[in-house]
Computed example of a mutant assay.
Amino acid sequence: MKPKIIQGGNFEDHRGTISYVNDFSFKDIERFYIISNCETNPIRAWQGHKLDAKNFYCISGSFKIHFVKIDNWENPSKDLTIETITASVTDSKIIHIPAGYANAIESLEKDSKLISFSTLPLSQVSEDDIRYDSNYWNVNG
C-alpha cells in the first residue's frame, strides 16, 4: 500500500463552516492524538512504524508531512526518497501513511495543530515505534 490523500471539502453558509472528509473510514482506528510542535523546533522527526498506519488531518495552521518507505528497519539507507505532502486547515484532507514508512511532521505556522488517527492499539506501540535521528534524512534538501 502507498501513501494517499483522502480528499474532503468545506461547506460554508451564514452559520459558519463545516469541514469534512466523508470518504475516510474509522473502521481500523484504535486511537488518536493531537500534535502541536513548539515554535523553536518545528520538525518532529523521524518515527517509523512497521505495523501502525497513520492518518493526519490538520486542524489549525499548516504542516508538511514528510515520509520515506523503509528498506531496512535496523539500518535504512540514507538515500531513501523523501516524499512530502502539505496539509493546511483550509484543505480538509486526510493524509494516509501506511505501515512500513517513517514520517516527519513539520509545522509551517505558529500554533499549528495536527490530529493523528492510528490503527495500532496503545498496548502494542512499544513493539512498533522505531525512532531515527532527527537528521537521518534531510527534509530541506
Results as ranks from 00 to 15, higher is better:
residue 50 K to N: 14
residue 97 I to R: 03
residue 100 G to T: 12
residue 89 V to M: 13
residue 130 I to P: 00
residue 48 G to C: 05
residue 138 N to P: 06
residue 76 P to V: 05
residue 52 D to Y: 04
residue 84 T to A: 04
residue 100 G to N: 13
residue 138 N to A: 07
residue 35 I to P: 08
residue 77 S to E: 03
residue 110 K to N: 11
residue 13 D to S: 04
residue 44 R to T: 09
residue 1 M to K: 15
residue 111 D to G: 12
residue 48 G to V: 00
residue 97 I to Q: 04
residue 19 S to G: 11
residue 21 V to N: 02
residue 99 A to K: 15
residue 28 D to I: 01
residue 93 K to G: 04
residue 95 I to H: 07
residue 89 V to Y: 12
residue 70 I to Y: 00
residue 109 E to Q: 13
residue 41 N to R: 13
residue 122 L to T: 02
residue 28 D to Q: 02
residue 3 P to V: 05
residue 139 V to E: 03
residue 87 A to F: 14
residue 65 I to K: 01
residue 81 T to S: 12
residue 114 L to V: 07
residue 79 D to I: 09
residue 79 D to E: 15
residue 69 K to C: 10
residue 49 H to P: 07
residue 98 P to E: 11
residue 23 D to V: 01
residue 56 F to Y: 15
residue 76 P to G: 07
residue 59 I to H: 01
residue 93 K to N: 08
residue 100 G to M: 14
residue 41 N to H: 12
residue 75 N to L: 14
residue 8 G to H: 00
residue 7 Q to V: 02
residue 85 I to E: 07
residue 110 K to M: 13
residue 120 L to P: 02
residue 46 W to R: 01
residue 134 S to D: 15
residue 131 R to E: 10
residue 20 Y to M: 09
residue 34 I to T: 11
residue 36 S to F: 06
residue 102 A to W: 03
residue 36 S to W: 06
residue 71 D to R: 03
residue 42 P to C: 01
residue 60 S to H: 15
residue 130 I to G: 00
residue 116 S to F: 09
residue 115 I to H: 10
residue 52 D to L: 14
residue 127 E to H: 15
residue 111 D to V: 06
residue 96 H to Y: 13
residue 128 D to I: 01
residue 131 R to G: 11
residue 113 K to D: 01
residue 91 D to R: 09
residue 69 K to Y: 07
residue 115 I to N: 08
residue 46 W to L: 00
residue 112 S to A: 15
residue 23 D to K: 11
residue 121 P to H: 00
residue 74 E to P: 06
residue 138 N to K: 12
residue 106 E to L: 01
residue 83 E to N: 14
residue 134 S to Y: 10
residue 73 W to V: 07
residue 11 F to G: 08
residue 37 N to H: 01
residue 38 C to G: 09
residue 50 K to H: 12
residue 56 F to E: 12
residue 77 S to K: 04
residue 3 P to W: 06
residue 80 L to S: 00
residue 5 I to K: 08
residue 5 I to G: 00
residue 56 F to S: 12
residue 11 F to H: 13
residue 76 P to L: 06
residue 125 V to L: 07
residue 19 S to N: 11
residue 98 P to Q: 09
residue 74 E to Q: 15
residue 128 D to Y: 03
residue 138 N to S: 11
residue 81 T to V: 10
residue 25 S to K: 12
